[in-house]
Write a protein that binds this DNA or RNA. Structure first.
Length: 680
DNA sequence: GCAATGAGCGTC
DNA sequence: ACGCTCATTGCT
């Protein structure tokens, strides 16, 4: 007997203080997505701290979990089980990240534990033991005191804000000042062409870091990560980079240095949006339209959304930057949630490259045999030849393996369903020797009598890509110049500023020393014809990202696409804001995100139908489909759409219906995605 | 009338 | 994968 507790030897007794632990358990069932109460045995009292990893017996099995908080009593009513083990007293789950994970789970109709899987990297015991433990002392500066608040402000003790380069944008210096003073300023920034944007982001980060607060910068890929890290290292000490491919040990080590407050400025790829930076003062996402910013694991959150929520929760400032602007960012500007940071038209005129567009049929009239070999319009050919005298030329060609659907045979705009505006596609096979009529990939309606709403043509065109061959032919058209390629297999980061042809697929364009003399954007119609509502936005984003690498001043950009198309005009005028506003208006008209909230429900026909029956949709709720999902005959997809105001409710009813199904131990479950890119 | 057995379900 | 409830069964 233990004299103090009255317990027999070896018997566990609850801790004296705060004996109840609220635990989120690692089971992937929607109906178990809530905390469970456990008893903290006295011997684990010291180790069982909020945020630590634990092992608990749950329905007989030992499962992993996170301890959210210690409390005095439980509402459960029955006898609590004891925590079996504290894996490590390291409080890996910061309270802010726990709250964020709950918020994101609710937003995306998923489970908190799924979000935590994205937010907290797997433990590596040796890295945990080896990593430095003590954070450096915080600067003795009141991060929150604005410059104007009484007496001489803390500002005078801070290093000056390096705002010069930001002064090309009228609101730029003010924004950096706001960052420096710790105000929760939200901004959408469109970088000027050829802007050294990694340097600008580093300056913004420095403005915040100098006041002792944390910074998160999220970029799409490793090449951007390397550029931003280099720029940050030049102006800030102790910058940490995070990415999934570091390997478990190094990744966990660096992540822990962030969690422990040793590192305060973090640059990384998408999972970095959840990095537990202490006292975050600035959250940045660069090129928020890149689909690499969408997590590929359930519940498929998007970096921009995560950072918007996080800024909202913590009072951190937010910066959404890019050459182009997404409709989502435009909505943040139009609703007044974010200010825009853009250059004046005068500034733009003085630095913008000359962009010309050429219709994609016009090259056929070309007389020049070399230009014919390259299958280039002479204007593009001449621009390349001129630039090759002293500089590299970038040629952007669409990736192979696109599966575009149908376009208008005349104007090449995407062919859409007249009922729901979904993309039209041709089914395989024939019917009585004739091709089957087109059908809508969303609502399955057949379209026998297509008529283009733009130009009135009745012709449909199946899209073919010959981009790779086009790229190879370019080499022959410019003999004597080296041809380098950058694509999925081998991505180049940087090329020297010497004459060369650089053929790259979108997203793999290397940076050229001193900038490219010319940028040729080929086969625009292939980018524009994707079975994707975002095709136009995506094309402009990719064009601007490539064109942004051009040499400042006298660089030339040639886009091979019909000049009457909105994104082509936006590129020629270098007006991403106009395009985003047009895009948002069009989506509002058609009833697409971000003007409304949509969800896809994928699964076997039975599962999808059962799920839809279960849904207690809000008033504006509307179901499209289900329709067969791609080539997979066994799967179907339904679309659910509600007004933006009912977005939360949509996520809630989807989660609820999913919970009903997991509770029934249904074998075939459905996959839910909110505002998925592939349908936008 | 009631113990013994087993299927189903919730899971602290 | 445990242990609880509740229904069914079989014996007094």
């Amino acid at each position: 007997m233990n004299a103090k507790t009255g317990a027999r030897k070896g018997e566990r007794v609850p801790a004296e203080s705060l004996p109840v632990a609220r635990i989120v358990v690692d089971v992937p069932l929607a109906h178990l997505d809530r905390p469970f109460d456990y008893s903290v045995p006295s011997e684990l009292d010291a180790a069982a701290v909020p945020g630590c990893r634990v092992r608990v017996r749950f329905a007989g099995q030992l499962v992993d979990g996170y301890l959210l908080e210690r409390v005095e009593t439980s509402e459960y009513g029955k006898k609590l089980a004891f925590i079996e083990k504290v894996v490590s007293p390291e409080p890996v789950l910061a309270p802010e990240i726990a709250t964020l994970a709950r918020t994101i789970a609710d937003r995306y109709a998923g489970g908190m534990i799924d979000v935590l899987r994205l937010a907290v990297p797997p433990r590596h015991a040796r890295a945990e033991a080896a990593a430095p433990g003590e954070p450096p002392p915080l600067p003795q500066l009141p991060a929150w005191v604005p410059a104007s608040a009484g007496g001489e402000p803390a500002r005078s003790q801070l290093p000056p804000v390096p705002a010069d380069a930001w002064s090309r944008y009228p609101r730029g210096p003010k924004y950096l000042e706001a960052l420096h003073e710790g105000r929760p300023a939200h901004a959408v920034w469109q970088a000027l062409p050829a802007e050294d944007w990694p340097a600008r982001l580093a300056e913004a980060a420095a403005a915040v870091a100098s006041s002792g607060r944390g910074v998160i910068i999220v970029v799409p890929d490793h090449r951007d990560l390397a550029r931003v890290a280099k720029a940050c290292d030049a102006v800030i000490e102790g910058v940490v980079t995070l990415s999934a491919d570091l390997g478990p040990s190094e990744r966990y080590k660096r992540w822990l240095s962030v969690r422990r407050g040793v590192a305060r400025v973090v640059v990384g790829t998408r999972a970095t949006a959840f990095a537990p930076v202490r006292d975050p003062g600035l959250l940045v996402v660069w090129d928020d339209g890149d689909d690499l910013h969408v997590e590929q694991r359930s519940p498929y959150p998007n970096v921009r959304d995560v950072l918007v929520q996080r800024a909202h929760m913590t009072g951190a400032a937010l910066l959404i930057g890019g050459f182009a602007r997404t409709a989502e960012a435009q909505l943040l500007v139009e609703t007044g949630w974010a200010h825009e940071i853009v250059a004046s038209r005068e500034t733009l005129r003085s630095v913008a490259p000359r962009v010309v567009s050429v219709g994609d049929n016009e090259w056929q009239d070309v007389k020049d045999p070399a230009a014919r070999t390259a299958r280039l319009p002479s204007i593009a050919f001449d621009a390349a030849r001129f630039a090759l005298a002293d500089s590299p030329v970038l040629i952007q060609v669409p990736r192979r393996g696109y599966v575009p659907s149908l376009a208008c045979g005349q104007c090449r705009g995407p062919a859409r369903c007249r009922r729901c505006a979904g993309p039209l596609a041709l089914p395989g096979g024939t019917e009585d020797g004739l091709p089957k009529p087109a059908y809508c990939r969303w609502c399955a309606a057949t379209e026998a009598g297509f008529r283009c709403p733009t130009c009135g043509s009745r012709k449909l065109r199946g899209q073919v890509i010959g981009a790779k061959r086009t790229a190879e032919e370019l080499g022959r058209a410019f003999p004597g110049h080296p041809v380098r390629t950058s694509g999925a297999d081998a991505v180049l980061t940087e090329v020297p500023g010497k004459p060369a042809l650089v053929v790259a697929t979108p997203g793999a364009e290397p940076v050229a020393e001193g900038g490219y003399g010319a940028v040729l954007l080929l086969d625009g119609w292939a980018l524009l014809g994707r079975a994707d509502l975002r095709a136009s936005e995506e094309a402009l984003r990719r064009w601007m990202t490539a064109a942004g690498l051009v040499r400042p001043g006298n660089g030339r950009v040639v886009v091979i696409a019909d000049s009457s198309l909105t994104p082509v005009q936006a590129l020629v005028r270098w007006d991403p804001v106009w395009h985003a506003a047009t895009e948002l208006a069009a989506r509002t008209e058609l009833g697409f995100p971000p003007a409304v909230r949509m969800a896809t429900v994928d699964g076997t026909p039975d599962a999808v139908n059962a799920m839809l029956d279960e849904l207690r949709l809000p008033p504006t709720g509307e179901i499209l489909g289900p329709v067969p999902l791609g080539d997979d005959e066994t799967k179907e997809r339904a679309l659910v759409r509600v007004s933006r105001a009912e977005g939360r409710q949509l996520a809630a009813v989807l989660a609820e219906a999913q919970a009903v199904r997991t509770a029934r131990k249904e074998q075939d479950l459905v996959r839910i995605k909110l505002d998925p890119l592939e349908v936008l």
